[in-house]
C-alpha cells in the first residue's frame, strides 16, 4: 500500500510539473523524415528543463515542451539548426503545453488549440 501511494505521489508530482510547461513551436524548414530530424530532437532534449520534443514534419514544426527556466532565442535556435543542416525560421511560445495529451491520443498537430502569447521571427 505504501508503495502504491508513493507511486501515485510521484506520478502526481510529475503531472503537476508538466502541467506548468511552456510550449514552443519551432518552425524549421528542410526536415522531411523522422531520421532527418533525429539529431535536432536529440540536441533539444539535452537542454535542461526540456521535457518533451515532437515534430510535425508536414508543417515543418518542432514542438518543445519545457519548464519556465528554459528561454529560447532566435540566435540560439538558428545556430542549433544550422549545425544540424536545416533552416530555422521562427518560433512561437504558448502558455500551455498540449503535445503530451495529444500525442497519447494519437491526435494530429492541427488539433492543438491555438494559444499564442508570443511570436519570434528570425527575420523580424
Amino acid at each position: 500500500m505504501k508503495y502504491i501511494t508513493l507511486v501515485l505521489i510521484v506520478l502526481t508530482g510529475t503531472q503537476l510539473a508538466r502541467a506548468g510547461d511552456i510550449q514552443y513551436d519551432i518552425r524549421v524548414d528542410g526536415i522531411t523524415c523522422p531520421f532527418c530530424v533525429a539529431t535536432s530532437v536529440k540536441a533539444l532534449k539535452k537542454i535542461d528543463g526540456v521535457h518533451t520534443v515532437g515534430s510535425d514534419l508536414d508543417a515543418g514544426t518542432i514542438i518543445v515542451c519545457a519548464d519556465s527556466s528554459v528561454t529560447f532565442t532566435n540566435e540560439q535556435l538558428q545556430q542549433l539548426f544550422l549545425d544540424k543542416g536545416f533552416t530555422f525560421r521562427s518560433f512561437e511560445q504558448k502558455a500551455q503545453c498540449t503535445i503530451d495529451s495529444h500525442s497519447h491520443e494519437g491526435a494530429e498537430l492541427e488539433n492543438i488549440p491555438e494559444d499564442h502569447t508570443r511570436h519570434h521571427d528570425r527575420t523580424s
Binding site: R27, D29, G30, I31, T32, L57, D58, A59, G60, T61, G85, F86, T87
Partner: peptide, 12 residues
C-alpha cells in the same frame, strides 16, 4: 560537400 541548399516546410 553540400554546395546548394533550398529548404521549405517539409521539403528540401
Amino acid at each position: 560537400y553540400e554546395i546548394y541548399q533550398a529548404d521549405k516546410p517539409g521539403r528540401t
